[in-house]
């Protein structure tokens, strides 16, 4: 149970909002539950509902609405690549296709054979000047990996970054 293991984190989250506005804590608590469980199962949603007094159906609605909450299991880490316009103008489409191929993935949302990485196609991540770029979402949060403005990150370098994350 989250309430057993993360009592102080939950108290800190609830403290950010007025006492009668516990519903505001739904989003940060979902991040906490997702870090703890890997994804937001029905049980996790029920727990967040119980802490905040919000109906599980409404909590599930929040999970479905926001793209950084996941109600299904995937690889240990989610690798999220942007190919929106500014990235695409700097070659992100071809880069992403090569990246998928290097990981032996046929299409988006597939997971590598070792279960480490699920590669997802996401919308703009706010790193348009550092394209191609990707972020990694895992139990520790979300972390950027980007090109330099004057030098694009190669697919080799990106694969190397993922190799370095394994076992951590």
């Amino acid at each position: 149970m989250l309430t057993d293991k993360y009592a102080s984190e939950i108290a800190e989250i609830l403290n950010r909002y007025p006492a009668e506005r516990r519903r505001s804590a739904v989003m940060p608590l979902l991040y906490l539950a997702q870090s703890a469980y890997g994804h937001l199962s029905k049980e996790a949603i029920d727990e967040v509902g119980a802490i905040t007094g919000v109906a599980p159906t409404d909590v599930a609605g929040v999970v479905g609405f926001y793209s950084l909450y996941h109600d299904h299991a995937a690889g240990k880490r989610r690798v999220q690549i942007c190919t929106d316009l500014p990235c695409a103008l700097r070659g992100a489409d071809a880069w992403a296709a090569e990246f998928l191929a290097r990981l032996n993935l046929k299409k988006w949302d597939e997971t590598t054979a070792d279960g480490e990485f699920t590669v997802e196609h996401v919308m703009c991540i706010g790193a348009c000047d550092k394209a191609p770029c990707f972020q990694v979402q895992d139990s520790t949060g979300i972390h950027f990996h980007e090109s330099q403005p004057d030098r694009a990150m190669t697919v080799d370098e990106a694969v190397g970054i993922l190799e370095g994350l394994k076992g951590k």
Partner: peptide, 27 residues
Amino acid sequence: FYHHRGAGAYICGEESALLESIEGKLG
């Protein structure tokens, strides 16, 4: 001073959707 993290919804940049999101609702 508190931070409230969004969760991947462009629409929450619209101010009233943003407020809904802080209230724990769909943006």
